[in-house]
Computed example of a mutant assay.
Amino acid sequence: MIDNQSNFPDIDFKEIGIYQFITSNPYGIDDDKAIFIDGLTDKKLTFGQLKANSKKLAFSLKNKIKFKRGDVLAIYSPNHIDYPVAIFGTIAAGGIVTPVNPEYTSEELASQLIDCGASVIISHPNYLDKSIKAASAANIHESKIFLFDENEIGEFQPFLSLFSNQEIKPEEYTPEETKSITAYLCYSSGTTGKNKGVETTHFNMISNGCF
């Protein structure tokens, strides 16, 4: 008989929200340790900043623009130092993140926004014109479009303007909910037809991260 038991110890998959998993800090990382570094600008994001700023963003998402548990926020940008805060601020608010291919046209962006029901967009400034056009097609008000980086463009505000002096307690989930509630809604390349949304739950992300 073949013994299928692994020689490695069993993995303890935590049945908690992805925000709680990421910030649980089992290895004792210092809050002032840079965990993201922009290779072009050398701008850094520390572990402490990620935790604090994501909770500040979550507070304003819920209290300023009435972002609710289960709502979808789209990020239309290439890699950016503020990307992690936007992701975990959305997650902390109980929302779903849908990252958008930065090479998409405004029509392709609109298609994803409509399909996933996004209500908020965080866009790289270089893609603002396409974001405006797509938001109009998806019936998203221009006041729900925010920008990476620190400068406003016309009436469009940087997402940093959403940061509150207050923090919110991140949304929590039961073990059962972690396996059924979507955290990320990523889209396929559309090789065999129209791009399709792939729902990834909190537990999906944690189990992948544990390997």
Score class of each variant (00 low, 15 high):
140 I>Y: 10
105 T>E: 01
146 F>T: 00
85 V>M: 11
128 L>Y: 12
117 G>S: 11
145 I>L: 09
82 D>E: 15
148 F>H: 13
167 E>P: 02
119 S>V: 15
89 G>T: 09
92 A>D: 05
170 P>L: 04
168 I>G: 02
103 E>F: 13
119 S>I: 15
136 S>P: 04
86 A>E: 10
176 E>M: 01
142 E>R: 06
114 I>H: 08
136 S>Q: 11
97 V>E: 06
109 L>V: 09
121 I>W: 06
135 A>E: 09
123 S>G: 08
162 L>P: 11
172 E>A: 12
125 P>M: 10
107 E>T: 01
139 N>L: 15
120 V>S: 07
104 Y>C: 08
167 E>A: 02
157 Q>C: 13
113 L>T: 09
140 I>N: 08
137 A>Q: 12
125 P>H: 06
152 E>V: 05
124 H>P: 08
95 G>I: 10
166 Q>Y: 15
160 L>N: 13
145 I>H: 09
81 I>E: 12
95 G>C: 11
99 P>G: 04
140 I>T: 13
109 L>T: 02
125 P>V: 07
84 P>A: 06
159 F>Y: 10
97 V>L: 11
154 G>K: 06
132 I>Y: 06
115 D>T: 14
175 P>A: 04
112 Q>E: 07
109 L>H: 05
88 F>D: 06
79 N>Y: 14
133 K>G: 00
116 C>P: 04
112 Q>H: 08
124 H>G: 02
137 A>H: 10
156 F>W: 12
119 S>T: 15
150 E>C: 08
120 V>D: 09
131 S>K: 07
169 K>L: 11
82 D>S: 15
175 P>S: 06
83 Y>R: 05
162 L>K: 02
112 Q>T: 08
141 H>P: 00
129 D>S: 12
145 I>E: 09
115 D>P: 13
142 E>K: 14
108 E>Y: 06
172 E>C: 07
92 A>N: 02
129 D>P: 00
152 E>H: 15
132 I>E: 00
97 V>I: 14
159 F>L: 01
167 E>G: 09
107 E>P: 00
154 G>I: 05
110 A>C: 02
164 S>G: 15
107 E>C: 00
173 Y>W: 01
111 S>Q: 11
168 I>S: 14
104 Y>L: 09
135 A>T: 06
152 E>S: 15
163 F>A: 14
147 L>H: 06
107 E>W: 01
78 P>R: 07
103 E>P: 00
124 H>F: 14
141 H>M: 12
164 S>C: 14
92 A>L: 01
126 N>A: 11
126 N>M: 11
97 V>Y: 09
110 A>P: 03
151 N>M: 10
158 P>W: 14
144 K>C: 02
147 L>N: 05
149 D>C: 06
167 E>Q: 11
146 F>G: 04
107 E>L: 03
140 I>W: 15
84 P>E: 01
114 I>F: 03
156 F>D: 01
163 F>T: 09
158 P>M: 10
152 E>M: 14
89 G>A: 07
144 K>A: 01
